[in-house]
Design a protein around this nucleic acid. Structure first.
Length: 415
RNA sequence: GGUGGAGUCGCCUAGUGGCCGAGGGCGCACGCCUCGAAAGCGUGUGAUGGGGCAACUCAUCCGUGGGUUCAAAUCCCACCUCCACCGCCA
């Protein structure tokens, strides 16, 4: 959530920043509700102070009668305050993070700003195969069986494909742990507070799988668990930055994506991911964001994938993000760049909600948190599209072979 | 799934309805003492929110959420976590 105290002191700055992402009206409503909340707070606290001083020691029966009257008044004031608090917190939960001044202007995907491109798009003298058509006895992607088992948007990855995917994850985990990231295998079922704390609730509720029976949510990213791992905790300044990487299976309902990316496993309800997550001081969060981006680029480069880096428009950001970079790899079958990784600076938005702070010179300050994709199967999909030959075989990058991937996926169809 | 016990200010602990507006010890900080230190002695010691330029001040916080009462760490209910035992499963 935003820093309400700071927002009261400098409402113009906050309003202008939030207006960039279309949240000015909610912000105005928040300020109005907050003013009312403060006056109700003053009233309730004054009554409580009166009651407290009057009920010191053992009161006489007469005094008890008076105290009963005071109690009624206090209950009324408290009820009004509670209602106002709920209204304020509801608004506060909906208001997104202040965008970074360098985040791109605009309201949607098309407004993303191109930062740079890397690599050459390959040229082919034959008809390209879709990733689901790259098949051999030793491995393939199977959407039809996935649908029979679980419905649409569920994939089986089999044999060489599965092995290559695991190699990708292991390769990225190795790289990150050698750069000081601590590997975590976290829970993927979490409570409501963890979802609110990371900003997926209330705004992303329709994209979450919710187990009503147990009131738990399936996480769509291990960002939730890696942010929650330090909820209500205090870092010492010397402990920062604290860098984590996690590997989990992730679940997304993809509500609102009907008809989008229906072919293959580009957009599925269940997918695996290596995640990066960093806790840092406010001064270091911008450069840490660039650092996460550099790791993502390094991975794309070592895989040999042509890509471009996009600065996502403020209106297209998730609520907690102040700024986000996407790396989009070239997908020659689709003839376009598609997101394979993404990293966000959520500044103090999640840390404020999750109450994660650090001690510096005896004072407590809110930490900044950042997250980024290490790798998902989307990188493998780009590999399968870019590195196929006319026989339908895919050359797997050498770097993945070092982690157990075969040298090729797919074999020429028996002719 | 069942039964019993526990959860208090960084740590340990006192606390059975108003003197708890939470006591003591340890730790920590500062001071005294000392050539210096230890010991000893003294003072202080959290978080959140409201008000105030500020010194400061008011409110809240005894696992969490409700309830009873003029008044709750204390009584009642539910839940969470930990420990022990029983059952079931692996």
């Amino acid at each position: 959530m935003i820093d309400l105290k700071a927002a009261r002191q400098d409402p113009e700055t906050f309003r202008a920043a939030l207006a960039r992402r279309g949240a000015a009206a909610d912000f105005d409503a928040l300020l109005a509700v907050d003013a009312r909340w403060r006056s109700l707070t003053a009233r309730a606290e004054a009554l409580r102070a009166a009651q407290k001083s009057a009920s010191k020691g053992k009161p006489t029966p007469d005094e008890i009668e008076q105290l009963r009257g005071l109690r009624v008044e206090l209950d009324e004031a408290q009820a009004a305050l509670d209602e106002s608090t709920q209204e304020r917190d509801g608004l506060l939960a909906r208001i997104p993070n202040l965008p970074d001044r360098t985040a791109a202007d605009g309201m949607d995907e098309e407004d993303a700003q191109l930062i740079r491109t890397w690599g050459e798009k390959p040229k082919f003298g034959f008809e390209l195969r879709d990733t689901t058509e790259i098949v051999s006895a030793r491995g393939w992607i199977d959407m039809a069986r996935g649908a029979r088992l679980s419905g649409s948007r569920f994939a089986y990855r089999i044999g060489d494909v599965a092995m290559s995917e695991m190699a990708l994850y292991r390769y990225v985990i190795d790289k990150l742990t050698s750069r000081g990231f601590l590997l975590v295998l976290p829970p993927i079922l979490v409570n409501e507070r963890a979802m609110y704390g990371t900003g997926f609730l209330p705004t992303e509720a329709s994209n979450l799988y919710h187990l009503e029976h147990d009131d738990l949510y399936l996480t769509g990213t291990s960002e939730v668990a890696l942010a929650g791992i330090h909820a209500d905790e205090r870092f010492e300044e010397a402990d920062l930055p604290a860098k984590y990487t996690a590997f989990t299976t992730n679940f997304r309902r993809e509500a609102g994506a009907a008809g989008k990316d229906t072919r293959g496993m580009f957009r599925v309800h269940q997918f695996d991911k290596v995640e990066m997550f960093v806790y840092t001081t406010p001064e270091l969060s911008r450069e840490t964001h660039d650092l996460l981006l550099s790791y993502e680029e390094e991975i794309a480069q070592e895989l040999g994938l042509p890509y471009r880096v996009m600065n996502i428009a403020v209106g297209d950001l998730g609520a907690p993000a102040a700024k986000k970079y996407d790396i989009e790899a070239w997908f020659p079958v689709q003839q376009r760049y598609r997101e394979i990784t993404s990293c966000s600076n959520t500044t103090d938005y999640q840390a404020r909600r999750l109450n994660i702070r650090f001690r510096r010179d005896g004072e407590l300050e809110t930490v900044h948190t950042l997250n980024g994709t290490g790798a998902t199967a989307r990188a493998l999909l780009s590999i399968m599209e870019n590195f196929q030959d006319e026989r339908g075989a895919v050359a797997i990058p050498e770097v993945l072979q070092r982690f157990g991937a075969p040298s090729t996926i797919g074999t020429p169809p028996a002719s």
